[in-house]
């Protein structure tokens, strides 16, 4: 039992941190520019594919740096030549632009690497069990994932708190219009933030790519969850995104271990639902069975109860 608890916690934290890496960039973009960037997870996917390709040429470690940079450049281009033009038409066209972009990126990935999963393996230097507790071993690359994401959080925190551009970004997160009025080149700040955000997503893709499965539909699989994290965490709050990511990661992991259904709980409370009752099927779903749906339940509850999100400063 202790074994299950310890490793579930570790698994939950790793998954949560991966979600955080993905969502931190989106939080920045969404809070500053108001763009619900549907292509964010596509950038994550590009990160995974680029690191695979670059890694084949120059090895994993340079790819860890190069792939996010490349994707960041693409992000800058997307903002400069696409989003900026759509911006004046309002938010729906912006969102639809990213929607179409996500579509395009998926097809381009198919064109480049095919539809089946690619052989994106953990680099040999990280492919060993770090430690074995009781009977379960813990792979080194997961520890590496943890280290990278924590490092990224610290770096991001320092940039935001200690640099000038960080100050502007922080200001823009909470008071976007005032910043523009103060004479800052807001479009350029937007472009940089967008590029940085996509690069972060790509970094997540590099280290998430070999832990998960690198396929053209990995973007579609993770996309909605990332939105959930951003909204639950609250607009303009990296801390909120971190808490939301970890919470979702850990809750989802532990929920899997719970083979309890509403039916069982009710039975304990002395209420019995007959097999013929319309509610029987609904009540007999185990928590474990519904685990991956937990983020969405959280999302809906959170938006109804506290639309600002956990640490958000404003509603939309």
């Amino acid at each position: 039992m202790l074994e299950l608890v310890i490793f579930s916690t570790l698994n939950g934290v790793v998954y949560g941190l991966l979600l955080f890496m993905l969502s931190s960039g989106l939080t920045l973009i969404f809070s500053m520019m108001g763009v619900l960037n549907f292509a964010h997870a596509s950038m994550f996917m590009l990160g995974a594919y680029f690191s695979y390709q670059v890694g084949k040429l120059v090895g994993f470690w340079p790819a860890l740096v190069l792939a996010p940079l490349l994707v960041g450049l693409i992000g800058a281009g997307v903002e400069r030549y696409g989003l900026r033009h759509v911006h004046r038409h309002g938010h729906v066209p912006e969102l639809l632009f990213t929607f179409g972009l996500a579509y395009l990126i998926e097809e381009i990935v198919v064109m480049g690497w095919g539809r089946n999963p690619i052989e994106n393996r953990v680099p040999a230097t990280l492919d060993f069990p770090l430690f074995t507790l009781f009977t379960t071993s813990y792979p080194a690359y997961k520890a590496f994932m943890m280290a990278v994401s924590i490092g990224m959080f610290v770096a991001l925190y320092l940039v935001l708190k200690r640099t000038r551009i960080g100050l502007i970004i922080q200001a823009a997160l909470t008071h976007p219009s005032t910043v523009a009025m103060l004479g800052h080149n807001v479009p350029q700040v937007f472009m940089r933030v967008f590029a940085a955000g996509t690069a972060l997503a790509a970094l997540a893709g590099v280290i998430g790519g070999f832990a998960l499965l690198t396929t053209p539909n990995m973007a579609a699989a993770l996309g909605p969850i990332v939105f959930v994290v951003v909204v639950i965490g609250g607009l303009g709050s990296l801390g909120g995104a971190l808490i939301a990511s970890l919470a979702i990661g850990i809750m989802q992991t532990f929920a899997v271990a719970l083979d309890v259904s509403l039916l069982d709980l009710l039975r304990h409370a002395g209420v019995a639902i007959g097999r013929e009752s319309a509610l029987f099927e609904l009540a007999s779903i185990k928590i474990a069975q519904a685990a991956p749906m937990i983020p969405y339940v959280l999302l809906v509850l959170m938006l109804i109860v506290r639309p600002k999100g956990l640490l958000g400063t404003r509603e939309t």
Binding site: F7, N11, L212, M218, L222, T253, A288, A291, M293
Partner: peptide, 15 residues
């Protein structure tokens, strides 16, 4: 488990 929704099976493996 839900169809094509799980991205990380580690929790299931632990179980």
């Amino acid at each position: 488990h839900p169809l094509q929704k799980v991205t990380d099976f580690s929790p299931y493996v632990a179980k």
